[in-house]
Amino acid sequence: MTAWQNWQAAFLKQARSDWDAYQKTTELEWPNCQRLHYLQMVTEKLSKAFLVAGDTKLENLTGSHAAFVKFIRIMSGNKNLQIALGMKKSQQKAKFNALLPLAREIELLAPALAQGGPNPEYPWEDPSGIILAPADYSFPLMQRLQKTPQGIQLLKYIEIFQKRFEELFM
């Protein structure tokens, strides 16, 4: 295998491991902060599995957490995926565009992007001066992921992309 293939396999393996951990938090009803932490990591590493094969510089990969929104935007026009999912191109575009706000919310969970606000890893101070721990915060995003059609669809695609990665993208 070439160097980029080794990096891609490693990012994919870690994304799958994070997904397994995410699934376990579902079974055990862990706090939302832990569930979202794993989910954010799945999406970041999955996106980076595509980026590392696309000649993206490694320092851009390790130094940035903003990849998932771009990944969903690029996927919205991917023809191979359109064929695999049996969608028309305009349908695929519309469907993926509808997922972008939730994808953005997941991306912004990374503490480096959360701008001192809610994130699943570190405490923050809210506008009224109250210090909050992630474990004490409800993270309404979790509800939107589980209860809205867009959330359910986005979770389904995240699962498909990493589980069928070799078939769809290699």
Binding site: A53, D55, F71
Partner: peptide, 11 residues
């Protein structure tokens, strides 16, 4: 979204 870098995806 601007990132100040070129994130190129491979297919």
């Amino acid at each position: 979204p601007p990132t100040g870098s070129v994130l190129s995806f491979h297919f």
